[in-house]
Design a protein around this nucleic acid. Sequence first.
DNA 1: GGGTGGCATCTTTTT
DNA 2: GATGCCACCC
Length: 763
Amino acid sequence: MRTFLLQREPSVADNVPEALPEAATRILEGLNPVQRQAVEVTEGPVLIIAGPGSGKTRTLTHRIAYLIATGRARPYQILALTFTNKAAREMMERIERLVGTEAARHIWMGTFHAIFARILRREGHRIGYTPNFSIYDTDDAERLLRELMPRYQIDPRQYSPRTIRHLISSAKNQMIGPEAYARLVASPVQEKAARLYGPYQEALRKANALDFDDLLLKPIELFEQCPDVLRQYQERWRYLHIDEYQDTNRAQYVLARKLAEGHRNLCVVGDDAQSIYAFRGADIGNILSFQRDYPDATVIRLEQNYRSTRRILKLAEAIIRNNRDQLEKQLWTENPEGEPIVLIEALSERDEAQKVEQRIRDLHVRYGYAFRDFAVLYRTNAQSRSLEEALRRGGIPYRIVGGLSFYQRKEIKDVLAYLRLLVNPHDAASLQRVINYPARGIGQRTLEALMAYARQHGLSLWQAIERVEEVGLPARAQKAVQAFHFLIARHAARVTSTPVDELARSLLQESGLFDELRREGTPEALARWENVQELLNAIAEYVTMAGESATLSGFLQEVALLTDLDEMPEDNRVTLMTLHASKGLEFPVVFITGLEEGLFPLAQATQDRKDLEEERRLFYVGVTRAQRHLFLCYARSRYRYGEQQPSVRSRFLEELDTDVIVTEAGLPFRRGEVEHRSSRTSRSGTPGFRGSHSQQREATRRVVYDEGVGEIVPGAYVEHPMFGEGKVLALEGQGEQARAIVFFPEVGQKKLVLKFARLRRID
DNA sequence: GGGTGGCATCTTTTT
DNA sequence: GATGCCACCC
């Protein structure tokens, strides 16, 4: 049975003792002098600038616990905002340990999105939202855009809804409205986004729906239009804490400012070197200018690292040195030198996974590390597959954090769409998702007719369905629509009177969804069916746990904001996750995999200095997760686009000037590839003889390609009229079709047809 | 209107 | 290698 992360709404009713003197002493005793200073400043704005491993989260949780223990704040007067559910959960657990669960559960803690969704549930009616609004995830938003595009003469094949959504989202993150955005347009795509921005917002509104960005923007609107509501929350929350402040975007910054106005007890913690969410609108400027915004702020620098060995810290510094925009920080540690960092070269992703598996086994058996001590990190979720396979083959228990979460699975989203429809029939995205699933004879044409009718009469899709007889559909289609209408309406009428899980079961049974899931009889279908049952159990659990305040729409809103599941923490398993997900965590042994050009850094990020610096900070974040052992891995070839392609090791390795890394054989690590070719003695002369590095020779042999055409052979350095100098990685195809895969430091990896490419050998 | 098979198309990271 | 889209047939 899964456990679900659904926190009870904290209440103002509070039977926690006024103060917990014993706990207060205990909290102070466990801190070093700098941390103690952070905890003891209890009034006014505080900026804690921290480095990795400095005990940042610990300092923040201690601060909060100290406020409660000394009686300066009642638990419900504290608001703590985080960016991920995981961070909130972790902080909550620590605080519980310090002041007990009874006090802790009255603290308002959660992600920005979750907290402000709750506020909107309660107060949104003041700006025209009923409490049962739907929260649209990126899929829903894209569906909405795709539907709008033809009406504005935009071809979804030419401009992908995803790109448009992303542009609109960025604008919203920076609090740029449709009109202002239209004035800023600088490219054809942006022009399309500007054209759709306004209609998109209208469509959301009509559906009584909010997207992720609205969850931050609408509260701002609410606070601006209703100062009394703002005042009410300002008074409730005397103390405001924000973790990972470097990741706040414009909207979050404004919200924090508004809430902290008045009492001015705002405490933020962050490390500019760990800013890795610019892609979602995070603005490092917020942390850099905190002192300007709050001139009387107390600034506390946590620079001592308690986590990692000296070698790991040294590597981290060598990495971040390559970035230009960085606050000056002197990280230091009293920890021992530690083991050298090991660079692992693999032939393929499969080989890489196998080597990781072997190292884990070795450290587990010989040095007694538990499986929970290991983390394997990667840049993209897709990379987890080969790692999973290797670990499964080796019989090593593992868990995957993030990736396709429970709530993102198709069957779950289908069920959720049905349920959302019950509480919010205007929810067009959900309606379109299920109106003909399972198939019930309402096809594309019928749907289009309904949508056209709705548009003509200024109705929502649901309202059009309600008066389907006026639409003028063929009798059979009309009957089908009426049956669907009846199904939903009948169940919607029972939302308040029937236990939610019972209602859901009845709806899913009668809609034919259960039969649809059972029909197939494959193991996958069975698993899907079980997932649905699990979801229904979760609803029941939520209802019993949250008591009277529990509503179906509340459940659906909370669930829309969940991305990962609670895993049982006592589980002894190796952790697999993206580098992003690893932020804030630590492990005795860490593997960073896939250090290859085009993958890490990602190809798209290599063009712009800022993007590249963000990738580098991500590398820095990954490295500083490690406490004792760190392995950096790359593969000389990898499956991409469904075929095996050679790869070049990451520039992040080439730019390191440090002596803390050794190769698998224990030899000192040497830099140099394309950029340093002149410093190397000649290799790559004739086919079949490709230099002295034995592992490299093996790697090239493994991938079977043609042996070369003329002087263009694997390993050769060539010049291309457009792309500049590059290195030939491999050749494939015959005669006219012969192509070379060439790596250009400037533009990345390219596949070129030799006949046309006019490559010139230059080495 | 529904179902199937072939084709193209990408692939970030998260709330 | 997974998903979505389109053309085709029933």
